[in-house]
Computed example of a mutant assay.
Amino acid sequence: MIRKTLAAVALAAVAVLGGCAAPTLPAAPAPAAHSLTPPSAESAVLAKSKPVSLDIPKIGAHSTLVPLGLNADNTVQVPPVSTPLQAGWYEYSPTPGERGPAVVLGHVDGNKHEGIFFRLKEMAPGDDVAIARADGTTAHFVVTKVDQVPKDVFPSDAVYGDTPDAQLRLITCGGVFDRSAHNYVDNVIVYARLVADGH
């Protein structure tokens, strides 16, 4: 039986962007909730291993991955805006390659410079994403969908929801910049699924 979606145990909250940076995601599920259901026999998944780095050839995005936890208000942290080329992995989501949706966040810009995900909106189905892991393997993902959605209708179910296989979410901000709010109005979300792994 597939577990309840992570979004179902999250508080209802609006996705908020930190300045011109990546989004602070809605309130997150309890840590390690993704490990409650074992992988199914028909789904190719990898053992748990922390991600080390991210490589997206199409958009020239290359970064180490820092762990991101929760803020005091239970929203997901983002990398410091002072280092806009740094991407981060939400450490209470599955590790990339494990069953479920691993979540990686990055800035579109920050500190008056382009961010690691400045070109994320250019991604398209079929594009490749590689994440090197601490165990020496690399989780290879192929993009299945790219969405740009208003922050006030952030798709928590789609981002956090349970999946029968190993998937990945890449998230940043996008759309029009609201100068009065000092925020972009949308989120850009890339959805991908595991296709292979290697040493």
Rank of each mutant, 00 (worst) to 15 (best):
Q167L: 02
T37G: 01
D152L: 00
H107V: 06
S180I: 03
V146W: 04
G100V: 01
L105G: 14
D186G: 06
Q167Y: 09
S35T: 02
P26F: 11
A72G: 02
T163K: 11
K50H: 15
L85D: 13
A33G: 00
A7I: 00
T95Y: 11
L6H: 01
L46H: 06
S82C: 04
P23K: 05
G126Y: 11
G175I: 11
H113C: 09
R193D: 00
L54Y: 10
D109R: 13
Q167N: 15
I2D: 14
V185H: 05
P101W: 01
S53I: 08
T163M: 03
A8I: 02
K48C: 07
A47M: 06
G97D: 07
G19W: 14
S43T: 08
A12R: 00
L68W: 09
G106W: 10
G19V: 01
G100H: 08
P31L: 04
L70Q: 13
A27R: 00
D127G: 11
V195E: 08
V149C: 10
G97E: 07
D147I: 04
T138R: 15
P79L: 04
V153C: 01
V16S: 09
A41R: 14
R99L: 06
H182M: 03
W89A: 04
V81Q: 06
D135K: 01
V195R: 12
D127H: 07
A27C: 14
W89C: 08
L54M: 12
A139G: 07
S156T: 11
L120R: 13
V9F: 07
T64I: 08
A27K: 03
E122I: 00
N183F: 00
I131E: 09
Y184V: 02
P51T: 04
D157V: 02
A8K: 06
F141E: 03
L70Y: 14
A12G: 00
R99G: 04
P26Y: 12
G126Q: 10
P150E: 13
G110P: 02
V52E: 14
E98V: 09
V153T: 15
L65G: 07
T75W: 06
S93Q: 13
M1T: 10
A181R: 13
D55S: 14
Q148C: 10
L85Y: 09
A158T: 07
A30F: 10
A10E: 15
A132R: 12
H34K: 00
T75A: 08
A15Y: 05
D147H: 06
G110R: 02
R193T: 13
H107L: 09
A10R: 04
A27W: 01
P96Y: 03
P67M: 00
V153I: 15
I59M: 10
V78F: 04
Y184N: 04
A22G: 15
